[in-house]
Design a protein around this nucleic acid. Structure first.
Lengths: 139, 139
DNA sequence: ATATTTGCAAACCGTTTGCAGCAAG
DNA sequence: CTTGCTGCAAACGGTTTGCAAATAT
């Protein structure tokens, strides 16, 4: 009955409150990359007494313990909201449809290798990277 | 006597005020990727009467006409300031030294090609991308 | 002459936080 | 019982904006 994230939270030693259980469920079930506003909307749909401050605190916490990943996709209307997704087994990057805002996840070993190689070329060990492709559908 | 950016501004039909001339000069001479606060600091060093609102308006304008590029590098202390650099002839990406914050510019044709290829694979034409590598120096 | 730009201060907007009460362990 | 969590509303920090005066063309 408990969501994927709830299990992880317990493992991390977090107290499981009703609010966290609900937010965890919402995030577990999200296949898009919702922002806080949207997580709040979906959560209050389940229990209207959840405050947005709690949503902010919870996603922050989940990010800190490595359960959630934060993104700051560039978006035409200049809105500046962080968006979230569950950390996946295998890393992936994102391609954003400029027209619709749709987000496509992909993974490419060749690029990952090249990134490490470039870092090394400049005397660095690659720790993290951010790669977003922005495109338009070929009709 | 006029800076590289000033020339471009005139070409774009912008009115050249003292403030814009100074901000243009500061940006032309910057080899780092200064944020607004820093551009403001350097500008008021030349003419103390420039307001930070003007700096904000000017970098925004310069970005809109394609002279400046805005970056939102991820940084440990969580500060959220946009940073700017002159658009260069040949596109480049950035590697950020996690420990020092130093920014290294690089260009890699192979990665650029791969990115296009990936976009195409999903039925997209690549319009833009963002790639930042975060690493630590190999001692 | 007139349209644009400036400086100021106030507004904005996403996010964080202090606090008193509440709930998990 | 104690420690951590919640809701509220106020604060925060980077950025934008309305306005009247100043300036470029």
């Amino acid at each position: 009955m408990s969501s994927e994230i709830e299990q992880l939270c317990i493992e991390k030693g977090m107290r499981m409150t009703d609010q966290r259980r609900i937010i965890a469920k919402v995030l577990s079930e999200a296949s898009d990359h919702p922002d806080v506003e949207e997580v709040y909307r979906r959560s209050t749909n389940i229990d209207s007494k959840i405050s947005i401050a709690t949503v902010y605190r919870t996603v922050r916490l989940l990010e800190e313990v490595g359960i959630l990943e934060r993104h700051d996709f560039r978006v035409e209307n200049g809105e500046n909201r962080a968006r979230f997704e569950l950390v996946t087994q295998v890393h992936h990057d994102h391609m954003i449809d400029i027209d619709t805002g749709a987000v496509i996840e992909f993974h490419d070993d060749e690029i990952e290798e090249l990134q490490k190689k470039i870092a090394k070329k400049y005397g660095y060990k690659l720790i993290d990277h951010r790669m977003e492709l922005y495109g338009v559908k070929i009709k």
